[in-house]
Nucleic acid binder design. Structure first.
Length: 496
DNA sequence: CGTGTAGCCCGTAAGGGCTACACGGTGCATTACT
């Protein structure tokens, strides 16, 4: 038994690695920067937790969502690891202070890119040896770092300030371009790459055309009524998520609810937990839902609209069938879909006047507190996301209307191009799986003829319909959900 | 593009009807502290 296997057994109770894990871990242990792509549910957290036990010093994990950090810390604690914490806004001032003052005690510290903006946090982190700098869901760097969450684009610089620890960038879905972007922004020129296929052979792909929205709604109701659940319906807007959930509730026997970014965080957690514990059959949501939803038995994912990118599409359908059992993805198309998404992307555009206002405020004020600046700018009618993006560009030295405008138009054009491509991929003639994999620079060799492939290759949708009686539904009372929650946490802890 | 709504007009009053225009999706953070 090697040292690696011993450690695996000692801390995780496993006797063997999942596909891809060992290579990634060996790369980390040899001190190299590593970029790893593992399919969803492929055991990504083990790839940094195990080396964490073998290396001296702290493992710092940058994570995009509070809920992901909390889940990970809880799982570590259930496994008996007390030296884990998440440093974020959910902590009280005292708790935060405690973590920072005792920072040398921690083995695994989770935080957001925004938290690393604080000079005080950075100073504290400099006082401890960091054995590994992990970026979880690393595609967020490319997806969000240029506009929505610019702090993601500063991680490369931050790493230098932290004494240049080795980096592990983890993701499940990325094209070559996205990986290149991640490497540029993180300044990882010589990283070892461990890439696995994004293909999920157990998910059959289907595209259906509808004449209009009314027909789509009818079809969704029909599908939800007949398909074996649980399932997810991805919607283009918050309003659609709410409306479809209402339609499904009133016209089918399915227990449905909605989920989007405009909800209170308590409600979001509740809905997600109910879904995970089988108290809901179907969830209608925007693209806010999904990251960190580690539910193994999702049987179908319906897209009520066009996704904005092929990467997003793969991420979203990839939430189905993590248990490896047959699952299905169905995309509904109708005229006008493309235009709606196009308009959502074009909301990001800004007028010359707005840019000029931003520049004037930035030049007039000595204040570099971004929050205060954003408040000022919002008084000029500039949206929060736009304000943040423009401040970010200004700080990078793009201090003229022309430069800022050019950059924003360029980003928007890239997004529109990605959308045109996914739209094209989903409507062209030919095998859908092959189209998607080609986009991800993969070749496709059908491995066996048993698994249904796609609506072009042909398959029988009734394979995915429920047989006989609907499965027994768990009651919606609080003590039973609490018991289920505790039970599931223990199970998760044992498995990981 | 499609939808919701603010604000205006009409007018011996209140609310209906119209036009113009904004909005649509992803999340951290939110106070000093050694």
């Amino acid at each position: 038994m090697t040292k690696l296997q011993q450690t695996l057994y000692q801390f995780f109770g496993f006797t063997s690695f999942k596909k891809g894990q060992e290579d990634i871990i060996r790369s980390i242990l040899s001190g190299k920067d590593t970029i790893a792509m593992l399919p969803t549910g492929g055991g990504k957290s083990l790839c940094y937790q195990l080396p964490g036990y073998m290396l001296d010093g702290m493992v710092l994990i940058v994570s995009p969502l509070l809920s992901l950090m909390e889940d990970q810390v809880q799982q570590l604690k259930v496994r008996g690891e007390k030296r884990a914490a998440a440093l974020n806004s959910m902590l009280s001032r005292q708790e935060r202070q405690f973590v920072l003052e005792h920072i040398h005690r921690y083995k695994f510290l989770y935080l957001s890119p925004e938290a690393l903006r604080s000079p005080y946090v950075l100073e504290k982190l400099k006082s401890v040896p960091i054995s590994l700098f992990v970026i979880d869901e690393a595609h967020c760097i490319s997806e969000w770092g240029h506009d929505f969450r610019p702090d993601y684009s500063k991680l490369g610089q931050l790493r230098k300030k932290l004494g240049h620890p080795p980096v592990l960038a983890l993701t499940a879905t990325a094209t070559k371009d996205t990986l290149q972007d991640v490497m540029n922004l993180l300044e990882l020129q010589h990283a070892e790459r461990h890439l696995n296929s994004v293909n999920r052979p157990n998910i059959a792909l289907r595209v259906e055309n509808a004449a209009d929205t009314a027909e789509k709604i009818n079809r969704v109701i029909q599908l939800v009524e007949n398909l074996q659940g649980p399932g997810i319906v991805y919607c283009p807007t918050r309003k659609w998520a709410e409306e479809l959930a209402g339609e499904i509730k009133s016209k089918t026997s399915s227990r449905a609810d909605f989920y989007h970014g405009g909800m209170e965080s308590g409600d979001r957690i509740l809905i997600q937990q109910q879904f995970i514990h089988n108290q809901l059959d179907v969830i209608c949501c925007t693209n806010a839902f999904g990251m960190g939803v580690d539910k193994p038995d999702i049987r179908y994912v319906i897209h009520f609209h066009l996704p904005q990118t092929a990467e997003a599409f793969m991420q979203e359908i990839g939430r189905a069938g993590r248990d490896g059992k047959p699952s299905v993805s169905i995309l509904l198309r109708a005229p006008g879909d493309f235009e709606l998404q196009e308009q959502i992307i074009q909301m990001e555009s800004v007028t010359d006047e707005e840019i000029a206002n931003v520049i004037r405020v930035l030049e007039e004020t000595e204040e570099r507190d971004e929050r205060r600046l954003r408040d000022v700018l919002m008084q000029y009618g500039v949206g929060e996301t736009q304000a943040r993006m423009m401040i970010h560009l200004f700080m990078q030295g793009k201090t003229s209307v022309e430069l800022i405008k050019r950059e924003i138009s360029y980003r928007m054009e890239l997004k529109l191009e990605k959308m045109r491509r996914v739209s094209f991929l989903l409507q062209r003639d030919g095998c859908l799986r092959q189209s998607m994999l080609t986009y991800f620079d993969e070749s496709y060799e059908p491995d066996d003829g048993n698994l249904p492939c796609c609506s072009h290759c042909g398959f029988d949708l009734s394979l995915y319909e429920q047989k006989g009686e609907r499965s027994k539904k768990a009651p919606l009372d609080s003590w039973s959900s609490e018991l289920q929650r505790i039970f599931s946490l223990q199970t998760v802890g044992e498995l990981n």
